[in-house]
Structure formats: structure tokens, C-alpha cells
Design a binder for these strands. Structure first.
Length: 155
DNA sequence: GCCAACGTTGGC
DNA sequence: GCCAACGTTGGC
């Protein structure tokens, strides 16, 4: 089982929205590297929910991947801000996953704390200039994060 | 609001 | 294929 980190702005869609919805389609990713990471997810993988552009930003909760390689419908919707006129229904460009709520962490981990605790190698989003919205979290880092958050999944 | 770090686009 | 211009992300 792999661990990932998915970013979203909590004012747009945060862990509390997911708690309410139960599951959601992680749509709107329009970066090829991030998409490739989404395509590498397998059912049962866990994803840390990262609140970006928040005050403060940080790791807020945990999700489980429940459906993989889902065609992102917003690419074909002219009304959507994620509409991609170059993507063809027979050859969709944007593929994503469905995620399910696992928990909102008792202990939110703010970015300054993450910087104190991990190196950029341990947690790729800390790398200078890293703007990728979907990244892998190495197993050792995932374990430490789960411990630090008081997750129900801690070992 | 600013800026760094990229990714994308389009002219040539 | 190069590269300048432009757009986006996201922290500060």
C-alpha cells in the first residue's frame, strides 16, 4: 500500500467537505506529472489531505483511494473551469481517482512544523519551488506523519 | 501583492 | 528545436 499527498484549497474543497460527502472524485488536476501520479494510485492506497493556501497550510486528514483511473468528466464540460477543448472523449487526457474519507486528524500539522520535522527528500512538497499537487509520500515519512497526527492508523 | 519555479504555447 | 512570453501554483 502506497501513501500519497493530495493538495486542495480548503475554502474550495477541504477535509470537512469530504467528511460530509463521504467520497469525492479528485477532479481538476491539469498537470501531467500530477496526473501520472494519480494514475499510479491503486485501490486501498492512502492519501494525506493537504490544505494549500490556508492559514496556515498543512496536513489535515487522511483519505483512501476507492476507485482508480476514472476519466475526469470536467474536461468535457464547457461550463467547467477545467474544460479542456483539446481532450477527445475517445482519448481522454485527464484521469483521476475517487477517494473516501478516513479521518480529519486530531492534530493538524502546519507547514512550519513540517519544515522543522522533515527534509525535502522525506517530504517532496517541501522542496523549493515544488508546486506538484499530487506527490508520493515515502513509507517512513508516512509512518511518522501518522504518529504525529494521532491518526487511528498509527502503528 | 510579490515572487520563484516551472509548464505550456507559439513564432520562427 | 529554440526560446521568449505568458500562465499557474502556492508560500510569504
Amino acid at each position: 500500500m502506497k501513501h500519497w499527498l493530495y493538495k486542495s484549497e480548503p475554502e474550495v474543497y477541504g477535509i470537512e467537505h469530504l467528511r460530509r460527502d463521504g467520497t469525492t472524485l479528485w477532479d481538476g488536476v491539469r498537470n501531467y506529472q500530477a496526473r501520472n501520479n494519480l494514475m499510479a494510485a491503486r485501490i486501498g492506497d492512502r492519501a494525506f489531505f493537504y490544505h494549500s493556501s490556508a492559514k496556515p497550510p498543512g496536513v489535515a486528514g487522511l483519505m483512501e483511494v476507492v476507485e482508480t483511473r476514472v476519466v475526469d468528466p470536467t474536461q468535457f464540460d464547457p461550463e467547467s473551469k477545467y474544460f479542456d477543448p483539446a481532450s477527445k472523449p475517445g482519448d481522454p487526457r485527464w484521469i483521476t481517482v475517487r477517494v473516501q474519507y478516513v479521518e480529519a486528524f486530531e492534530q493538524f500539522l502546519a507547514l512550519p512544523f513540517l519544515r522543522q520535522t522533515f527534509t525535502a527528500k522525506q517530504l517532496p512538497i517541501l522542496a523549493r519551488g515544488n508546486r506538484l499537487s499530487v506527490t508520493r509520500v515515502p513509507p517512513a515519512t508516512a509512518r511518522r506523519l501518522l504518529d504525529l497526527t494521532g491518526s487511528t492508523e498509527r502503528s
